[in-house]
């Protein structure tokens, strides 16, 4: 049982985002490869590779997810978004073959989150991407469950280093179940402990508050 001073907001995972989730905020800064479909006047400073004042049509550059999502429109073609490598056909075959061997932390670390966000940009491959995301999650589920429920009192960094951020959160919740059961079995659950809130609490001095 671990008490926290605040309750972290879970990431939205699907196509929606949770505004207050820290994970989703970091996710929205992932860079996507895009291609401009019209001229962006006076925005040349965004593109470091050329000296011109404008960004001409057909430039290939990278924009963060939040900006690409805002600019993307089906009717007025402002920009077209290319799929990041991990969601393309070649990698999808790898994921479908054996999802367990892939290092999702290196590939992501928001593999599921970004993959779901990619569905906003109407690509013809969308159904396959969604299917691969789901199959990857299912394929890796057993291993994640077993490792989180069996690693008691040992270094888990080797177990979590290949996990996606979403899977890491699941790993933590699996560990909390295991730890609470083990501490009960050893009779530690009946001992009263001070709340972490109280331990971290220090009296504030009036001089700290008034400069």
């Amino acid at each position: 049982m671990d008490t926290q001073s605040y309750l972290p907001v879970q990431p939205g995972v699907g196509m929606g985002e949770n505004f207050l989730s820290l994970d989703d905020i970091v996710l929205s800064h992932e860079r996507l490869p895009i291609r401009t479909e019209c001229r962006f006047p006076r925005l040349g400073f965004l593109e470091k590779s050329s000296d011109s004042q404008d960004i001409p049509e057909g430039t290939k550059m990278e924009l963060p997810l939040w900006l690409s999502k805002g600019l993307y429109e089906k009717k007025r073609r402002v920009l077209s978004v290319e799929l990041p490598k991990v969601y393309r056909e070649g990698w999808r075959t790898v994921f479908n073959a054996d999802p367990n061997v892939v290092d999702l932390h290196k590939m992501g670390p928001y593999y599921y989150g970004l993959g779901s966000q990619m569905l906003h940009f109407d690509s013809p491959e969308n159904p396959e991407i969604a299917q691969t995301l789901l199959q990857t999650f299912i394929g890796r589920f057993r291993r994640n469950m077993d490792s989180s429920q069996n690693a008691y009192n040992e270094d888990t960094s080797a177990l979590v280093e290949r996990l996606d951020c979403l899977e890491k959160a699941l790993f933590t919740s699996g560990q909390s179940g295991l730890n609470s059961f083990q501490s009960w079995e050893k009779g530690q659950a009946s001992q009263l402990t001070a709340s972490s809130l109280v331990l971290n609490y220090r009296k504030r001095k009036i001089t700290d508050l008034q400069p």
Partner: peptide, 11 residues
């Protein structure tokens, strides 16, 4: 199950 539900609703 929550995660899986969300990934499924992507379909």
């Amino acid at each position: 199950l929550n995660c899986m539900y969300k990934l499924r609703s992507n379909l």
